[in-house]
Design a protein around this nucleic acid. Structure first.
Lengths: 144, 144
DNA sequence: ATTTCTGCAAATGCTTTGCATTGCA
DNA sequence: TGCAATGCAAAGCATTTGCAGAAAT
């Protein structure tokens, strides 16, 4: 895995401790945190960091393509350092977001899906999102 | 097509002019309006209707299953009287939301997709959303 | 030396809420 | 008549914005 500093540099954006920290959080987790979660996670090590900076930072990282935004329908957005398209499942009970493993959705990963859709819709397409909604194994177990 | 009044009655919710009007708007269009658009559309015929009522109404209609919510990632939600799962395309330039014609996505309509995903994820799933993002033919044409 | 970013606080704007009034059933 | 829905205005809250100071190139 490439160093975070280099990756930012390649995108021609200024390399700041805050940006490295936010990106590092997203690379280390598969939990698809939202802005507040990222902020809380960084607070201990960066007590001066402001929430507004986290908002601005995820926006920049998303625009340069280092991360992707997910909109599971909660209101706020969630962020994912894995930018390759892959489906997500959202637990409507506890709010957790999981990846759907690739092997089960290889058609979705395939670029030809977008190509097909471009033909069918006449749109010029740049991305896809596939979301499943339900109750996660844990919440099912706990009967909530 | 069934009468709107009857459909509300079957869902055991009170039949009011506002609810009929909101639902009528959604049944008549394929444009997936948001709350503000529904409100503007109804203003001429229902000048006393309040925006808060539209919010409350779409919420009720969604909960009883007469309409579905779409979250294309704009911030607000959009509403669709077609509750059967079907993919949507969002134009990031002008904000229009189109349906993707069924014939091109028959796998997606298939209930077995959800069944497959339940197995793969361990979740108990209730719905799916598939969104494509890009630029619509019109915006492409106008080069914006 | 410039340009860009950060952090703070204020502003924004969509959505929700509370409550008196109205209107379905 | 009783319970639920409406309309209004106020409140709430996540996100954005403006700007002075700080930091990166």
């Amino acid at each position: 895995m490439q160093a975070i500093e280099e990756m930012l540099r390649e995108k021609r954006i200024k390399v700041t401790p805050q940006r490295m920290a936010v990106y590092a959080v997203l690379r280390e987790t598969r939990r698809h945190p939202n802005v507040e979660m990222i902020y809380q996670k960084l607070k201990p090590s960066y007590p001066a960091m402001s929430l507004a900076t986290v908002y601005k930072t995820v926006d920049v990282l998303n625009k340069v393509g280092l991360i992707q935004e997910l909109n599971v329908g909660e209101g706020g957005l969630r962020y994912d350092a894995l930018t390759k398209p892959h489906p997500h499942v959202y637990c409507e009970t506890c709010g957790q977001v999981d990846d759907v493993e690739k092997f089960s959705m290889k058609d979705f990963q395939d670029d030809s899906l977008i190509a097909q859709m471009q033909k069918a819709t006449g749109y010029e397409l740049s991305s896809v999102q596939l979301y499943f909604y339900g109750k996660c194994p844990n919440c099912k177990e706990l009967n909530i």
